[in-house]
Write a protein that binds this DNA or RNA. Structure first.
Lengths: 188, 188
DNA sequence: GCGCGATGTATCGCCGCGATACATCGGACG
DNA sequence: CGTCCGATGTATCGCGGCGATACATCGCGC
């Protein structure tokens, strides 16, 4: 969800819309776009709920020329106290929503602000969700393989390999997380 | 787009909603879901436009019990002549829309119904779009690398590798396509 | 001095998603 | 022999994101 991303970015420093979008691209990279068509409505919503405030960065609007078509100044967005609470709440979330395709990447991007335990639980949740999906597809593929043309087959197999790759990636990450939190009670 | 997928599937045989969804899952695998929340509205829209017709599979509705809460019979969807035309039109499309993330997979899934030349153009279009994106992310990454925390960095790099993988996959596919259409005028 | 690309705010309609509701049917299990 | 459950089946609703588009300003090169 965009909401988390916005809260996470604004937690570092106040920003205006355009910058926010640049940061979004820089932070999420390949993985997700978030156009203005989502950004501005989201900002509006968040302001209305009270997570953020917006204020003029440009005070120089004054009585200049235009009663109509007023000059639009930069609008700077800033976290409120409630916004910070909300961010903490979202960062602590390790339920199904945090390992959905669309949400996981955003959560991951803000892992440095996330509790180590929660990190592991999110990574594991994501992994088992992917494994489930993989097994589902594998089963269905085994059943219908014969009936499928080569293109459909190749698509499926490419998809399967991608999922596999991500599972392996997650496994590495989980191991790293574990070895970093060396308050090991269970490990012999 | 769901429209193409529906047309492609109905071209093989008439189906009702539930089957259609099963086929969708079997055909697209990991790559895309398409819930009923999209399916039924889309079918409605397509019927209204005239690409498909819907008719009762179950004639056994009759005057049984319920004037209210009428028993719902299966609804079988079938391509019209216009629908077939529309399918051909969409299959021939090799513009930017066919190499978008969401659309490409659907196009690919129906490649066996697609003209070989169009296939290559779609694959190449997809590839160059991915290469563009990759270079964009790489550039931005090189610029901001120092400022990013390790998680963001890992996310970016994982994404980059995924893109790379897909590019390699596409390259293989393109080569296969080329070598199969051996009406070589240019190749010495 | 003029145009063009980057910066900047904003809206609109489309489409897909997840949740939910509701109904029927066949088989498993007590 | 009843009943409960999971698969089959149709359908809607609200939400959130996307791409296109509009419009305005600023700084730079030519």
């Amino acid at each position: 969800m965009l909401e988390l991303a916005v809260l996470g970015l604004l937690h570092e420093s106040p920003l205006h819309g355009y910058e926010l979008r640049q940061r979004l691209k820089a932070t999420l990279g390949t993985f997700r776009a978030f156009s203005y068509g989502s950004l501005y409505p989201t900002l509006r919503r968040m302001r209305d709920t009270g997570w953020i405030t917006e204020d003029e960065g440009d005070a120089e609007v004054v009585a200049g020329a235009p009663p109509l078509t007023g000059r639009r100044g930069k609008v700077v967005y800033r976290l409120t106290a409630e916004g910070k609470e909300r961010l903490q709440e979202l960062l602590a979330e390790a339920g199904p929503s945090s390992w959905e395709d669309e949400t996981f990447g955003v959560h991951f991007a803000f892992f440095s602000q996330t509790d180590p335990e929660v990190r592991v639980r999110i990574l594991e949740g994501r992994r088992s969700r992917l494994e489930e999906r993989r097994e589902g597809v594998r089963a269905s593929l085994a059943r219908t393989r014969a009936r499928l043309d080569s293109y459909t087959l190749q698509l499926q197999e490419h998809g399967l390999e991608s999922v596999d790759r991500e599972v392996r990636w997650l496994t590495e990450l989980i191991e790293t997380e574990r070895s970093q939190s060396n308050t090991g009670t269970t490990q012999p």
